[in-house]
Amino acid sequence: MLGEGLLKGLAETARNFAGSYVSKERLTTVQYPEERVAPIEAARVFPFLVYDGADWEAGLRCVACQICEKECPPKCIYIEKSKDKKPDYVGKPQIYPARFDIDVSVCMSCQICVEVCPFEAIKMDTEFELATQDRFGGLLHDRKQLAKSNEYFHAIHPTEAAEVDARLDEEKAKVEAKAKAAAEAAAAKAAAGAAPAAPPAAKPAEKPAGGGE
């Protein structure tokens, strides 16, 4: 008869209404500021800069190559290169970003900066509480706010961080092996006693790499 479906529907909502007071598992709402859902590993919100070691300024992996700045679709990254150089993770002297700003309000969380970065220096964060009361300054994050340690990276994205570390270690091993080979070759050459003048500038640069390890 006409109206049966309506009555069934009404009964269903009535059951939901009453049931939500009786059984807690019906209510799927998470009362956000007090309760939180466990973070999802694949979540991505906003980029951050990875640094190694204890000092964020010294340990920044970024070399200010500006690829991310160029690739960023909404152009929310602003980088200024430094005048001087400092050694990177393999010990090679590199310029570093004197300024690295990302505008939260413009960023669209596309992760392209992460994909194009050849130095594994920029990664996606899971931090989402980026709201601020200062809509001009507060939304522009500078490099100090963006810098986060590799340990933090491990904490939020363990799988990805492990892969990145493995890759970096491999690279470092390769560089070291190369350096060793070069050193051996130089030593062999020196032992041969033929040439006294190897380029002096390259050697001190390679030495700290070995020393650092």
Binding site: T13, F17, S20, Y21, R26, Q31
Partner: peptide, 8 residues
């Protein structure tokens, strides 16, 4: 309405 949709 919230309770009918199992919300608070």
């Amino acid at each position: 309405l919230g309770r009918m949709q199992n919300r608070y």
